[in-house]
């Protein structure tokens, strides 16, 4: 074969191969995964006016998601805030209490409710605020914000945590190396190490339930409707309507995480 022939044949082969090759397309596996669930975008709505701090949601969550019941970690929790009229913290044992102007606690993640006016300030110590000094007091449910720009996903060195197309951040328990970088990266403190599995653990909106048309365990167990889950892509979803037409707040927007848990009546003191 001389050079002329060689070039001719090469051109023919390339031209011939180009036609079927142009039909080939590299498919991003993410797109395939997203195909089924693209009609959903899960969001959460918490109404702090309705929350009474009973702790049913925490109980239900721990049982549903098999987070050891007595371990001092939880996927969701309830915080109590007691704001004083003078905006200061109480004095405890004669020592000024530098809690930066707020009395707040979440003993056992609020699992057993708040049955005493004693505020837990850690290491077995408590303070009590006199009723006449209180200007307002309220409860705030907390859970993973399933951020649209999740720092935990960004910092995972092995890609063991990822955001699904329907907006939920999940953890691959078989791939997590347990470095704790995601725990450090979360400004909301929702992540922890699972005491038995020794991998990063967090709220996932009960993904196993919501993808089967059920409510999350916490929403299901809340007797007052303080917690609601909805689909932002469904314009008739009551949660979507509240977010669209109501006045809602999010936590710590300054971190640029774009949280997807919305709050009604969010007080400025909420941390």
């Amino acid at each position: 074969m001389d050079r002329r022939d060689f070039l001719k044949r090469t051109i023919t082969i390339i031209a011939g191969a180009a036609i079927p090759a142009s039909a080939l397309e590299f498919i991003d596996p993410k797109r395939l995964l997203a195909a089924g669930s693209s009609d959903y975008k899960w969001v959460f709505l918490a109404d702090t006016q309705k929350c009474v701090g009973c702790g049913f949601c925490v109980k239900a969550c721990k049982l549903e998601n098999e987070v050891p019941y007595d371990a001092d970690v939880s996927r969701t929790w309830v915080e109590r805030y007691v704001i004083c009229k003078d905006g200061k913290m109480r004095v405890e044992n004669g020592m000024p209490n530098p809690g930066f102007g707020i009395n707040a606690d979440s003993p056992k993640a609020g699992r057993d409710g708040f049955t005493t006016p004693q505020i837990d300030i850690g290491e077995g110590r408590h303070v009590e605020v006199k009723e006449e000094d209180i200007s307002k007091a309220f409860f705030v449910p907390k859970l993973c914000n399933q951020c649209d720009n999740p720092p935990c996903v960004q910092v995972c060195p092995v890609g063991a945590t990822y955001k699904t197309a329907d907006g939920v951040v999940l953890v691959d328990r078989s791939w997590c190396i347990g470095c704790g970088y995601c725990i450090m990266g979360c400004p909301y403190g929702v992540r922890f190490f699972h005491p038995l599995l020794k991998v990063a653990e967090k709220c996932n909106f009960c993904y196993h339930r919501i993808t089967k048309g059920m409510k999350t365990a916490c929403v299901q167990s809340c007797p007052f409707g303080a917690r609601q889950i909805g689909n932002l892509k469904d314009p008739n979803d009551p949660v979507t309507r509240t977010i669209m037409y109501g006045r809602v707040g999010v936590l710590k927007s300054e971190y640029g995480t774009k949280p997807q848990v919305y709050y009604l009546a969010l007080d400025r003191e909420v941390r």
Partner: peptide, 25 residues
Amino acid sequence: MMEVHGEVWTLKEFFCYPNEYIYWS
């Protein structure tokens, strides 16, 4: 009681989130 990673060496004072511990020791 079940011990959580970090619990044994972390002392908490005032208002910390329930899942916060000294994870990087």
